[in-house]
Amino acid sequence: MCASACYEIGCALGDAPTRGTLALMLAGLLWYVGFIVVASILVSFGAVDSTRRPGYRRRDGKQEGTLMWPSLVMTAVVAASFAASHYSLT
């Protein structure tokens, strides 16, 4: 979603009617690039967290899914902001 939003905003940059809209588009572009960077870091941590290490397990033997909730929240935020930028910036 972030790459699609970056492409969509990038294509619409030349058609910005005002400087304020252009600034808002550039801020949106930076917003999505930031999410791409954070998501790649989150994926790296998820790959490390998925290895079997007894130190990161709970007492009942189940592995903690601590990275699942930030991932779900981030997906929801990106989906909502993509819909908002699609209908308002382009």
Rank of each mutant, 00 (worst) to 15 (best):
A3V: 11
S4A: 15
S4D: 15
A5C: 08
C6P: 04
Y7E: 14
Y7I: 10
Y7C: 08
E8K: 14
I9M: 07
C11P: 04
L13G: 03
L13H: 07
D15W: 03
A16S: 06
P17E: 05
P17F: 03
P17D: 01
T18R: 05
G20P: 00
L22R: 06
A23F: 07
M25G: 03
G28W: 03
L29G: 08
L30V: 09
W31E: 13
Y32F: 15
V33E: 03
G34C: 09
I36R: 03
V37Q: 02
V37L: 09
V38F: 13
S40G: 09
S40F: 12
I41H: 11
I41D: 06
L42R: 06
V43W: 04
S44G: 13
S44F: 15
F45G: 03
F45Q: 06
A47N: 13
S50V: 11
S50C: 02
T51G: 13
P54N: 14
G55P: 00
R57Q: 12
R57G: 10
R58D: 11
R58E: 08
R58W: 10
R59E: 07
R59Q: 10
K62A: 10
K62R: 13
K62Y: 14
G65C: 06
T66C: 10
T66W: 13
P70L: 12
S71G: 02
S71Q: 12
V73D: 07
V73C: 15
M74Q: 06
M74T: 04
T75G: 00
T75N: 04
A76E: 03
V77F: 09
A79F: 10
A79G: 09
A80Q: 04
S81E: 04
S81T: 09
S85V: 06
S85Q: 07
Y87E: 11
Y87R: 11
Y87W: 11
S88A: 12
T90L: 09
